[in-house]
């Protein structure tokens, strides 16, 4: 898995450098800006991935909120949005659930190309064709602030 690092040219303002190690052992350097981008009302972010979590389709809301171009996103692994603040057990639970053929729903802090972040409530389901899981589909929506605060208290330890 190869994802381009985030470089100083991509971000503006103060940033912190983080080194993420993904589930498959590959690494990425990201620059994190401590600034939330408010989730726009009514937007629904849609993507479809293959079995490995590579993005095969996404809607315009996905492109707009991620700050990547469509070309950068199609074919990229979904973990291009991984934020270093979210502990990896959250993603492990996500994958275990969907690989078992079930629906997963939870709160995720997503990292934009410009180093800023946005919170979503994500629902992910396996896409089943002729009885077999062939990929996954996800819709994200604007989360409740109360629920995000509860999630932060539980998982982000501050």
């Amino acid at each position: 898995m190869e994802i381009k690092d985030i470089t100083p040219a991509d971000v503006s303002g103060d940033y912190e450098e983080h080194h993420i190690t993904f589930y498959d052992g590959s690494k990425r350097t990201v620059l994190v800006v401590d600034e939330e981008v408010p989730y726009p009302d009514g937007r629904l972010i849609v993507s479809v991935t293959d079995l490995e979590g590579r993005i095969t389709e996404c809607n315009k809301s996905f492109v707009d909120m991620s700050a990547y171009s469509r070309d950068e996103l199609i074919g990229a692994p979904q973990c291009i949005l991984r934020h270093p603040d979210i502990p990896s057990h959250v993603y492990a639970d996500l994958w275990e659930t969907i690989q078992a053929g079930k629906k997963w729903q939870g709160y995720i802090k997503n990292l934009r190309k410009d180093g800023r972040y946005y919170w979503v409530l994500a629902t992910i389901i396996p896409t089943v064709r002729n009885g077999e899981i062939v990929g996954y589909a996800s819709v994200r929506r604007k989360p409740s602030r109360k629920k995000i605060d509860a999630f932060i208290a539980e998982h982000l330890g501050n």
Binding site: I125, T127, V139
Partner: peptide, 13 residues
């Protein structure tokens, strides 16, 4: 059509 079915499934909780 399958995508539409998946999408509706993903929107209903």
């Amino acid at each position: 059509v399958e995508f539409m079915i998946d999408l509706m499934e993903t929107l209903t909780v």
